[in-house]
């Protein structure tokens, strides 16, 4: 039973990797063959994935910034270092919560939408129709979504870092009574480039995860309307688990290599 489960998981992992390499192949080789994804559909996806996610990412980051500020103030007040709330918020947002929370929000919103759309196309023979029309579904459907996520998720992550810092700033200045200039100074004194690029690198890995899992689940949907629901849920759950897993691995790599 466990053996069979392990084999089936390994088979899926192999196919997911296959889809990833196939996507990369079309991104690199496609333009040379004159068969690249349409620019219009990439922009369309960028608007759907990026622009339409701004509000929800904004709120999540803003309130998270407030919460980190309050929670760390509670601890730091006992040590008499309330001013370090600024550093706590900026570094935590940039290294960890900015990329992870943005990825989780986008996985829930976009990963699900991608699977539901492609899954519906699969069960209504539209994917097969593309194939018969000699239009590769990976080039036509996966590449635009993959590229759009790859571009937009890091942008959303940087935005979320900044918005989180604004949330923390409001708590620091209006609740803790810290000097606003001093708060900004400390925020950026402790925040180094390394913190930002490791966060952005994480968001790139998360973007790939959400796009490939979302598309893989969609393209493999079976079982009609019920199947679409099932695979959409599975897509979000798998993306969540993988995001947290990759976050742990990457944080470990950065930590042990002193990055």
């Amino acid at each position: 039973m466990i053996g069979a489960y392990a084999i089936s998981t390994a088979q899926h992992a192999k196919k997911v990797l296959g889809l990833f390499f196939d996507t990369v192949y079309w991104i690199i080789v496609g333009p040379a063959k004159g068969k690249f994804a349409k620019r219009a559909s990439i922009f369309e996806q960028m608007v759907f994935i990026g622009v339409r996610s701004v509000i929800i990412v904004f709120f999540v980051a803003f309130f998270t910034g407030i919460v980190i500020a309050m929670q760390s103030a509670y601890q730091l007040a006992q040590l008499g270092g309330t001013i370090y709330v600024a550093a706590m918020v900026s570094v935590t947002m940039a290294r960890e919560l900015g990329p992870v929370l943005t990825a989780l929000v986008v996985a829930g919103r976009i990963g699900a939408a991608i699977t539901a759309e492609l899954g519906t196309m699969k069960v209504s023979e539209q994917i097969e129709a593309l194939d018969v029309l000699a239009l590769n579904p990976v080039r036509f459907l996966v590449v635009p979504r993959f590229l759009a996520l790859l571009i937009m998720l890091p942008c959303l992550t940087v935005m979320s870092d900044l918005v989180g810092m604004v949330g923390g700033f409001l708590v620091g200045v209006y609740n803790l009574g810290l000097n606003p200039y001093r708060y900004i100074d400390v925020s950026f004194e402790f925040l180094v480039w390394r913190d930002i690029w490791t966060g952005v690198l994480k968001s790139v890995v998360f973007a790939i995860t959400i796009a490939i899992i979302g598309c893989y689940m969609g393209l493999n949907t079976t079982g009609g309307a019920e199947g679409v629901g099932k695979y959409t849920t599975l897509s979000v759950v798998t993306s969540f688990i993988l995001i947290v897993l990759f976050d742990c691995i990457l944080t470990g790599v950065f930590y042990f290599s002193n990055m």
Binding site: T120, M121, S124, E125, Q126, E128, A129, D131, V132, L133, A134, L135
Partner: peptide, 26 residues
């Protein structure tokens, strides 16, 4: 494949495209 055509049982039109876009896609 460019020399064959297929009419599907459920018609398999692309939902996100108009009739004209569906027909002109190939």
């Amino acid at each position: 494949k460019k020399k064959i055509g297929m009419s599907f049982q459920g018609s398999a039109l692309f939902d996100s495209m108009t009739v004209g876009e569906n027909v002109s896609l190939p």
